[in-house]
């Protein structure tokens, strides 16, 4: 049975009007203020319990969408619903059912301890005195922060600060979490822990719906069941990361380590570049057409030339490469 819809955006548009300086107004009183479209007819839905990714570069509209859901920004037109409730109509109820995680370390009181910060925000989420203390203590334990809970926030590492941000978003046990680049400033190990916590504990075990805004394609692939790729407020593509990258025009990239090969085989369907040579092993980057047999033909050509393939790995395209190949004017765009 399909899960109920947790987040629904219908033709959501947000246009910002750039404020004009007094000088501009004085010099050009009749000129219309410049408008910037952050979201253009965005329509999507996420299912309860799903981790849904918002992929896109800076300015794509990811944060604007999250801010609309959080009640910080009003849409220009269209509507957004969380668990069936319109965010513009009943902001308070929506805020009770979502938790927001940003990567902004400044959103805490640095001179207070982690526990004091959580106690304070728990009150803002409507928890009573005892309830606030219990929720804070439980979450600090869950985030493995029990031993440092009474240290000032300013003494925390970036990873600890980010864990506290997640704990804060969970204080009122919301069914929906909006996460804006939660691993942005974390080291790879901390980022991995964060991803597994969100995936295993929040999504799998506790059934939270997670809306994850990220630049990181690998992160989206690891965590999200579905993603949308946004650019300048429009959806360029949606589906699983594998579907999105598989359907791309252009070439796949492979990293090959080959021994005993004098020169890489050539063919119009691929292009091999020697990246480096270590001893008798050549490390090649192969750009191969996506026509089904080109890659196996390349491997066969290497073997036929008496080369030995030591290793072979597909390199995932970066988000930038996806944008370059998809382009904002791609016919797949919905805007």
């Amino acid at each position: 049975m399909a899960q109920p819809v947790a987040i629904l955006a219908e033709n959501l548009t947000k246009t910002y009007v750039k404020r004009r300086s007094l000088r501009e107004v004085a010099l050009h009183p009749g000129r219309r203020a410049e408008r910037v479209t952050a979201l253009s007819g965005l329509s999507l839905e996420t299912r309860a319990g799903e981790i849904f990714g918002l992929l896109g570069p800076n300015g794509a509209g990811k944060t604007t969408f999250l801010k609309i859901l959080a009640g910080l920004v009003l849409p220009t037109s269209g509507r957004a619903l969380v668990n069936g409730i319109d965010v513009a109509q009943d902001e308070s109820t929506v805020k009770r059912s979502i938790g927001v995680v940003t990567s902004d370390e400044r959103s805490f009181y640095w001179r207070l301890t982690g526990r004091e910060n959580l106690d304070f925000f728990a009150r803002l989420y409507g928890l009573g005195g005892a309830g606030a203390r219990v929720a804070s203590a439980d979450l600090l334990e869950e985030m493995d922060m029990g031993s440092i809970a009474d240290r000032p926030f300013m003494s925390y590492s970036t990873g600890m600060k980010q864990r506290l941000a997640i704990a804060r978003a969970l204080l009122h046990d919301p069914p929906v979490l909006c996460m804006d680049e939660p691993t942005r400033s974390l080291d790879p190990i901390a980022a991995k822990h964060m991803r597994s916590f969100v995936f295993d504990r929040l999504s799998r075990q506790r059934g939270k719906t997670v809306l994850l805004a990220t630049h990181n394609l690998a992160e989206a692939e690891e965590m999200c069941s579905r993603v949308v790729v946004l650019d300048r407020g429009r959806i360029l593509k949606q589906g699983t990361v594998v579907e999105i990258t598989a359907d791309l025009p252009g070439r796949d990239h492979y990293m090959l380590a080959v021994r005993g090969l004098d020169s890489p085989p050539s063919d119009p369907r691929w292009r091999c570049t020697v990246e480096r040579q270590v001893g008798g092993t050549r490390h090649l980057i192969a750009e191969v057409n996506r026509d089904g047999s080109a890659f196996s033909d390349l491997l066969a050509a290497i073997l036929a030339a008496r080369g030995t393939i030591v290793s072979c790995a597909r390199r995932e395209p970066s988000l930038q490469e996806i944008f370059d190949q998809m382009g904002p004017d791609s016919p797949e765009g919905t805007g």
């Binding site: 979502i98 959103s107 803002l124």
Partner: peptide, 18 residues
């Protein structure tokens, strides 16, 4: 300026109370 206003505004507490 300290960045805490946003964290408070995403809670259900009305802005007047904040």
């Amino acid at each position: 300026m300290t960045g805490t206003l946003e964290a408070m505004l995403v809670t259900p507490t009305p802005i007047g109370t904040i």
